[in-house]
Amino acid sequence: MTRFAHLFSRSALTIYLSVAAVFTILTLLVAIDPAMRLKHEDADLPIAAVDAAVARGRIIYMAEGCGYCHSQLVRPALIDTPYGRPSRAADYAGATPPLVGTQRNGPDLSAVGERQTSHVWNLYHLFNPRSMVPASIMPAYPWYFEIVDKVDAPAGALTLVLDEPFLAEGKVALPKPEALDIVAYLLSVKQQ
């Protein structure tokens, strides 16, 4: 026993290696093994076909860090009922990574595509959320829009028309392709 204790109090290599060994074993128990099992169980889940615009939109959703304020995880409890049914493993099949999130500075979006189905509302809200929800604290994303003079806007194109302070007098906003991709993604986020 004393020799054993001595080994620890004297040998840096023993400490280093035994910590690495203990930690690796515990990692296998609570991370690697359960993750492997879950992966195995999920292998049969159908992965929904995703069209190209939705896939591009999801990448922008990640790039802009939307997931830091919007979770996509509905818990099986009363508090979460406004957001849809409780989330299942199937909801995240094929998702790299699953966008569960840890905070709700804004509402959960697990089923936002069922709740807010308007393409136009989403574009206005993306351009400046306060144009649709005055008390919103979500950032505005004007860089996904082109601001042009009203007279220069191409006929028939989807144009955002807003008063001050959102747009200067005589200006309109034209969504860039990225804006359409983000909205395509948001409309696609549904619970099957």
Partner: peptide, 29 residues
């Protein structure tokens, strides 16, 4: 020593491509 023994293992697991997808990633996260 413990901090420096754990960090490489931890970092490796965090970036393992095997668990990048699906609900398994929630456990790793």
């Amino acid at each position: 020593l413990a901090g420096f023994a754990c960090l490489p293992v931890l970092y490796l697991v965090a970036y393992l491509p095997a668990f990048a997808t699906g609900s398994a990633n929630i456990i790793i996260q």
